[in-house]
Structures are given as C-alpha cells and as structure tokens.
C-alpha cells in the first residue's frame, strides 16, 4: 500500500504540471452549443486571437450563488408587488400606474434571471417555496398597514437590493479587470452580464426613489419597519447564496 502511494504522488504531480494543462486546453474540443454560441458573436470571437482564461472554482462558485440569489430576490420582488397591489389600490387608486410599472419591471428582471440560471446550468434555490410564502406575506401585511408602510417596505427592500447588486458588480469588475491586466480577452458573456446587472440595479434604485416620493419616511414606526425588513433581506440573501 505504501509503495503504491509513493508512486502515485510523483505521477499526479506530473499531470498537474502547467504544461500538461495548457496542452489539454489547446486541444480541447468545443462542445456543440458552445460552438454555436461562438459563431453567433463572431465579432468578439474571431477577430481577436487573444485567449480567455478558464474560470477558477472560486469564480464559478461566486457566479452560481450570485445568479441563484438574484433569481430568488426577483421572485420575492414580483410577489411582494403582486401581494401589495389589491389592498393598496383599493385605498389609493392613483398609485395604479406606478405599482403596475414597478411590478412589470420586476417581472422582467425575474424572467432575465430565470433564463440565465437555465443557460448557465445553475440550480435554483432549494428554499424557493419558502421565499414565495415569505415575500407574499411581507407584501400583503405591509400593504394592509397602509400606503406609507408599503412604501417603507419598498424602500427597505430596494436599499438592500441596490447595495447587493453593487457588491456583485464590484466583484465582477474586479474579475474582468484582472483578466484585462493579465492580457486575456473578456467575452460577451461577461460584458452582457455586467450591463444587465447595472441596468437592473438602476431600475431597483429608481423604485427606491418612487417609494421615497410616496412618503415612505412617514411610516410609523419607520425605523422599526425598515430595520426589520432590511435585516430579513440580508438574512434571506445570506441563506439563498448557500442553499
């Protein structure tokens, strides 16, 4: 047994040598889907002979948990606005266009992340049903408490979400910047992801502005409501990044 181990080690080390890896990479056959994709964005693929760096395990982990948490977050946002709708609109019909606008934007974000999750083969959050129930409950209960409370809920959620998207964008920019510094090419996959995240972040922050315009600060007690909801959001983000 001992003898086998001593042989096993040097042989492994040989296989892990960088030259062996780079050889493997240059010979790698592109799977069909990938080839199709490459031909569809041929402008970035064929004109530049630069190579793209393989993603590290850490970067993959970050990207999967980022997509997973974003999908769960947008699911929750859609359900919050859906549940807030009827009780709020009964008392304040003039908010109909605003609520519909915010809901439609969230529905579009949700669809975007559903597509990305499927495309990049990330598993959705296992607590999906729990997020659905909790988001509906949060939306409905704040709406029953009144317009100000509902807007304070939007304020709290969108503040957390805006910060969360910003943190993701920062990490992605670091990744991309490092590739560029090392002379690697950055593909359309990542530039598209960055622009999508930026657009969605801006729309979320726009919702925050709408909430503040509609007296979110007048909710009683404002500090307690936003404090509890923000803490809940942070907890949910932490959990759905992992499960």
């Amino acid at each position: 047994m001992f003898a086998t181990r001593t042989i096993a080690r040097p042989a492994r080390r040989l296989c892990a040598a960088p030259q062996c890896l780079s050889l493997a990479r240059s010979l790698s056959t592109t799977p069909a889907i990938k080839a199709q994709h490459a031909s569809s964005d041929a402008t970035s693929g064929t004109s530049t002979p630069k190579k793209r760096k393989p993603l590290t395990q850490e970067q993959r982990d970050f990207l999967s948990s980022a997509l997973r948490v974003n999908q769960s977050g947008e699911l929750a946002a859609v359900l919050i606005y859906t549940a807030q709708g009827p009780p709020i609109l009964r008392k304040h019909p003039h908010l109909r266009t605003l609520m519909a606008h915010m809901h439609d934007q969230e529905a579009e974000h949700f669809k975007t992340f559903n597509k990305l999750i499927h495309k990049h083969r990330v598993r959705p959050s296992a607590l999906y049903p729990l997020w659905s129930v909790m988001a509906t409950g949060l939306g409905w209960s704040t709406a029953v408490m009144g317009r100000e409370a509902a807007m304070a809920c939007t304020e709290a959620v969108e503040t957390e979400i805006g910060g969360h998207y910003n943190a993701q964008i920062r990490t992605l920019l670091e990744m991309v910047g490092q590739w560029e510094a090392e002379g690697y090419e950055v593909g359309a996959e990542f530039t598209d992801l960055l622009s999508t995240l930026r657009r969605i972040r801006d729309e979320e922050l726009e919702h925050l502005d709408h909430a503040l315009e509609n007296d979110a600060k007048a909710a009683e007690p404002h500090w307690l409501l936003t404090g509890v909801i923000r803490a809940g959001c942070r907890g949910a983000i932490w959990v759905s990044e992992r499960v």
């Binding site: 990938k34 793209r52 760096k53 395990q57 982990d61 495309k119 990330v122 593909g187 996959e189």
Partner: peptide, 13 residues
C-alpha cells in the same frame, strides 16, 4: 455542472 457553466471560457480540466 452544478456550478456556473460558461460558454465563453475554456472548461476546467
């Protein structure tokens, strides 16, 4: 496969 599957970048070893 359970991790992010990139179409732009070379696959891991």
């Amino acid at each position: 496969r359970r991790h992010y599957h990139s179409y732009d970048h070379p696959p891991p070893p």
